[in-house]
């Protein structure tokens, strides 16, 4: 099986797809920034932001279910934040403390508010990031970053990563297939021999994958030099922003700014 399916881009013709990648990148970061700066327990603002991102998802026609399914990936990390629910020292002044019957712990109202705010911010942000990746082909994201002054070298390395990720991921998958073919997996789900031995086998696979990648990079470099590569990465000329991009960028940027100001006006 080839891993081109790994690509998260969903082809489409919606206005969100057609938007310039630079505008999409800036707006996504701006959206995440707005969510990050919104004060705790500003539920109205979180709701407004969710309405905005839902509208954008619907306009993009990539499917609400798909975005939600991908966004759920960030949820396990919330366990790390769950601990704030338990009486948080700094916020003790406000809100009530509810002792948990039968346990020595207590839950603070402020702590719950803080936890739910973190959930809201994190889920809003990940939806925006999913939408960006689903509506923008990766090469477009790359030149978008280049135009936004991300160091040229990092963008070039990122381009190579993307180009060879699928090649090497296929290779890794073949190696794992070969390992399974050599050593049948017992039905109880446990591998053979000791953990250290299994880890060493996996290590050897990583080692040979490294050697194949390294030698491949030498061949690629030779091929590039043969075609006149001199260490400079050159890109095709970057198109200018269309009026539509300006309108979308300024409109959404202003909306987010107004929401942020409202958030501070209402909740601080």
């Amino acid at each position: 099986m080839h891993l081109h399916a790994l690509d998260t881009y969903q082809p489409g013709e919606s206005p969100v797809h057609r938007l310039d990648p630079r505008v999409k990148l800036v707006l996504t970061v701006l959206f995440i920034l707005t969510a990050a700066l919104t004060p705790d327990r500003a539920w109205l603002i979180f709701g407004l932001l969710e309405a905005l991102i839902l509208a954008a998802i619907l306009a993009s026609q990539v499917g609400l279910g798909l975005v939600q399914k991908r966004s759920a990936l960030a949820l396990p990390f919330l366990l790390a934040a769950l601990t704030v629910v338990f009486a948080r020292p700094g916020d003790m002044g406000e809100g009530r403390i509810l002792p948990l019957p039968g346990t020595p712990w207590a839950v603070s109202e402020a702590g719950i508010g803080r936890f739910l705010s973190i959930v809201a911010r994190s889920y809003l942000s990940v939806q925006a990031a999913v939408l960006l990746a689903a509506t923008t082909p990766f090469p477009d994201l790359l030149w978008g970053m280049r135009a936004l002054k991300v160091p040229r070298l990092l963008v070039a390395v990122g381009g190579f990563l993307y180009r060879y990720l699928f090649v090497l991921a296929d290779e890794a998958r073949r190696m794992m297939q070969a390992r399974e073919a050599r050593s049948a997996v017992p039905s109880n789900g446990r591998g053979g021999r000791s953990i250290a031995w299994r880890a060493r086998v996996t290590g050897a696979m990583a080692g040979s994958l490294f050697l194949r990648a390294y030698e491949r990079s030498e061949r690629i470099w030779a091929a590039m030099v043969a075609r006149g590569y001199d260490g400079e990465v050159r890109v095709l000329s970057i198109p200018t922003l269309r009026p539509m991009d300006w309108r979308a960028g300024i409109g959404w940027g202003l909306t987010l700014t107004v929401i942020l100001i409202a958030a501070y006006g209402l909740y601080k």
Binding site: L153, A156, V157, G158, G159, F160, L161, Y162, R163, Y164, L165, V167, L168, A169, E171, A172, R173, M175, M176, G189, R190, G191, I195, R198, A199, V201, T202, M205, A206, L209, F210, A213, Y214, R216, S217, E218, I220, W221, M224, G231, V233
Partner: peptide, 21 residues
């Protein structure tokens, strides 16, 4: 720089797929 680091970045990415029980 670019070809070596780019392909090896792809290697790190792909190597993260390798797992053991």
């Amino acid at each position: 720089q670019v070809p070596v680091m780019g392909v090896l970045a792809a290697f790190i990415f792909a190597a993260q797929m390798l797992n053991f029980t």
